[in-house]
Amino acid sequence: MRRARVVAAIGHAVPWAIAVVYFFAVPSDLDFGTQVMIWILFAMSLDLALGYAGILTLGQAAFFGLGAYTAGLFAIHLSPDPLLGHLAAIGVTMLVGALTGAMILHTTGVTLLMLTLAIVSVLSQYANQATDLTGGDNGLQGIRLDPIFGVFEFNIFGKTAYFYALVVLFGWFVLARRIVHSPFGRSLDGIRQNPHRMRAIGTPVWWRLLAIYTISAAMAGSAGALSAHATRFVGLSVLDLLTSGTVTVALILGGTRRLYGGFIGATIYLVVQDYSAKISPFFWEFVVGGLLIATVLLLEGGLLDFGPAVLRLRDRWQAGQRR
């Protein structure tokens, strides 16, 4: 029991230790690390809605993009303070998450999926057309940011952006962990499995779904804000359907309902993309696709299930030997 607790504590420390070590070990490529953390946060937001609560959505890019544009526009038009801009992005995505959630969460299955697609398509088209506001195809340029707390300056070395992303990710992670282990989180798990059962024990299903959808939207919006701040640029691709698809692939690759699934999935996705793109620009999609198929077919719980799956194989092999 005690040993298990120690192992678990070490397990929890590993990803954060890696993040800190990376900072000192690879100072030349901090931007990549920042991107990874942004996508981890994005995947974690999807894990709350899709993984835990079973909300079938392909519209998560709507909130990522909305958060990015809000943070970018806030910096350009209102204030260059990054933290205020970040809060604005969270506020706007929460509001839009609550409003759209209220409209669509009484539906399930394919209907819900289509509605989430519609939301992201509407936003994407709007951003494309409203060139005066968003810059359209050229993207949102000219984002300038004050130093965080007036001290830590955003620069080309990306040190500030890296730690900024790390701190934000850690904060959301702590909140997400609270949520999934709380009675609220357990009720979401129940709703995913059997909404009828949950209503029969007195759970207001729609309100619970709306709550987690709103939190998930805020988290995705926060990831979008990080993206806008880290690159000081927002392109139309943040609202692309493909962005929704990518984050879903990253999450499923790593494993849903683990919180850490996004950590593994997003990291592997971006690393594979980075390396195989150097070999051939088309090759990486082939590799990622193959990896996804292999994971889904062989590892029920995503790549996080790799260790346990190997142990199970070993046990079975040993049992066979004994016989």
């Binding site: 009675p183 609220f184 798990d189 129940g190 059997n194 949950m198 029969a200 024990i201 007195g202």
Partner: peptide, 29 residues
């Protein structure tokens, strides 16, 4: 209509938590 992936005890505990309205507790739950 049960939560098939959960244990029998969890199935009951989730109902009890719902009865006692613990759902919105995010601290010291």
């Amino acid at each position: 209509q049960l939560l098939a992936d959960n244990t029998a005890r969890d199935n009951l505990a989730i109902a009890i938590a719902e009865r006692d309205r613990h759902a919105w507790r995010l601290f010291r739950f």
